[in-house]
Structure formats: C-alpha cells, structure tokens
C-alpha cells in the first residue's frame, strides 16, 4: 500500500510535467500539423534559464533566506525567455516554410532542435556540465500517510502544473483568442477568410506553448535540482515521452494531452515500481506503437477523414 501511494504520488508529479510539455506539442501540431522537435529544447531552455536566473538573483541580492516569491519571479523570467525564443523560432525558421511539404518542416524542426541544443552547450551559454538550482521551495513534509511523505515540493509542482492546465483550458475554450486558435486548427484557409489573423494566432500559439514548456522545465529543475547539460539525451527522451503523451491523448486535443501526460506518468512509474525500472522507456514507446496501431487518433482524438 505504501509503495502504491508513493508510486501514485510520483506518477502524478511526473505525469503533470509530461502533460505541460505535451500541451506545447499538441497545440503546434493542431495548428501547423508538424512535430515541433525543438520543443524539448525550449524545455531545456526553461530549466537552464530558471537555474541561471535563480543563481544570479541569489548572488546579487545576498538574502540570508530565499524569499518565498523568488520561485514565482524565476518562473516568470523563464517564461518570458522561452516565449521570446519560441516566437523567434517560429518567425525565422517555420514561417518561411508555411507552404512547404511537411517533411521539410520536420527537418527544419530537427535543425532548430540541434541548433538550440548545441548553442546551449557552448561554454559561454550554459556549458557542458550539469549544475544544480538553488532551493526555491522549502524542503518540508506537509503530510504523512503511513510511510509515505507528501513533500511540499511535489505539492507545489502539481498545483502549478494543474493550475496552468486549467488556465490553458479556459483560454482555449472560453476566450476569443482561444476560439481563433481552434478555428485555425480546424482550417487555416477558412479561418483566414473569416478574418482570423492566422499568422498572429500561430505566433501566439508558439509563445503559449513555449511558456508552458518553460514551466515544465522550471518544475523539472525544482524536482530534480540537478539540471543536465543541454545536449543530454535525457532531454530529448523527455521531449519524446511528452510527444508520446500528446499522441496517446489524441494529438491536437488540449485535454487529450493532459490526460495522455498523466497516463504516461502512471505507466512509467508503475511499470518501474512493479516490473522493471530499467525498461521504463520501453513501456512508453510500446504504448505509443500500440496506440498508433489500434487507435491512431488517440484517446480523445476524433478520426479525421482524409480528403483527396
């Protein structure tokens, strides 16, 4: 029972991170119909950006104790940074390819991913060594059930992730810009004819996705405190798993991405706890293949009829 609860907590914590990152993939896929391979690198940027900013703030301010609001400020800084980068990437790399075949956009996305990764690797940027982020959230246990401790850190992470997801859900389904996003995703040409500023909506989507990625990176850095070098394969794997989450939930579907993220988190954590921990990546990719074979549109996705 204790192990079950512990695993469940872990699964929720990691699943909500996957969900946050999956949202970025799913929104971009919904609108532009391509996998934004560079998304995982924006997550890295979020993690490293928060790390650098938190360190800088601690050094310059010289607090004896980290103030409670520093976490929020760091998060906002990371979001602004990632949002800017996301905007620039879309403008400079993807926009010229609006009418190009999908495979070209895919290759460009790989190029952007490699570019961000290896720029981050430069000594002048983040360097090639892992670093650790200062403690931004108090190291406290808030509740204890049996042997299972519920850590402050996990609760804050889960709460942040969930509130961002709810906020996004509201944005997409209840606001004007959200309606524009859905319209462009449904049919860009028609949306354009109806007066939706398509390019601006696409930019907005990228900025939004990148900000969520920043949040994901920030929470990741907080959770594991050690942040690996930007080209570490773990980051690419993280991105891939988040993408799998988006596909499992139904790509292009915002709520599906959240559900998929949690599903992947549960599968991975319970698989590791009860079967074999070294094969956790294999479970995730096997799930992907199974979903693609039997329900390619994902859990919540609707099957689109292909028009010739």
């Amino acid at each position: 029972m204790d192990q079950f609860l512990q695993t469940l907590m872990g699964a929720l914590a990691i699943g909500s991170l996957y969900a946050l990152i999956a949202l970025g993939y799913t929104m971009v896929y919904g609108i532009l119909k391509f996998i934004n391979f560079a998304h995982s690198d924006v997550v890295v940027l979020g993690a490293w950006g928060s790390l650098v900013f938190a360190r800088w703030a601690e050094r310059t301010a010289g607090w004896s104790q980290t103030p409670w609001y520093l976490g929020g400020v760091v998060l906002i800084a990371a979001m602004v940074l990632c949002g800017t980068v996301g905007f620039l990437v879309e403008r400079l790399a993807y926009k010229p390819l609006r009418r190009a075949p999908r495979i070209n956009v895919l290759i460009t996305a790989i190029g952007v991913s490699l570019f961000l990764q290896n720029t981050g690797q430069l000594e002048a940027v983040f360097g090639t060594r892992p670093a650790s982020i200062p403690r931004l959230v108090g190291d406290r246990t808030i509740a204890q059930i049996g042997l299972v401790k519920i850590e402050m850190l996990d609760v804050v992470g889960l709460f942040t992730a969930l509130s961002f997801m709810l906020g996004l859900d509201w944005l997409v389904f209840r606001t004007k810009i959200g309606r524009a996003m859905r319209a462009v995703s449904f049919n860009p040409q028609t949306a354009g004819l109806m007066g939706v500023p398509v390019d601006r909506v696409i930019s907005f989507t990228f900025v939004l996705g990148s900000m969520l990625a920043a949040t994901g990176g920030f929470l990741w850095a907080l959770k594991y405190s050690q942040v690996n070098q930007p080209a570490d394969t773990g980051w690419t794997l993280l991105g891939l798993k988040a993408f799998v989450a988006a596909v499992v939930g139904g790509i292009g579907n915002v709520r599906g991405a959240m559900l998929g993220g949690l599903a992947i988190g549960l599968l991975e954590q319970f698989g590791s706890a009860y079967l074999s921990s070294s094969l956790s990546d294999v479970y995730v990719f096997s799930l992907l293949i199974v979903v693609l074979l039997f329900r390619p549109s994902g859990i919540l996705g609707s099957t689109a009829v292909e028009k010739v």
Binding site: A93, I107, T108, I110, G111, V112, S113, L114, F115, Q117, N118, T119, Q121, L122, A231
Partner: peptide
C-alpha cells in the same frame, strides 16, 4: 560544428 550543421540544415 553541430551549430553549423544545424544552421545548414535550416
């Protein structure tokens, strides 16, 4: 090197 590759690709 990898940055140059990436830019070349794009």
């Amino acid at each position: 090197r990898m940055i140059i590759y990436a830019l070349a690709l794009i």
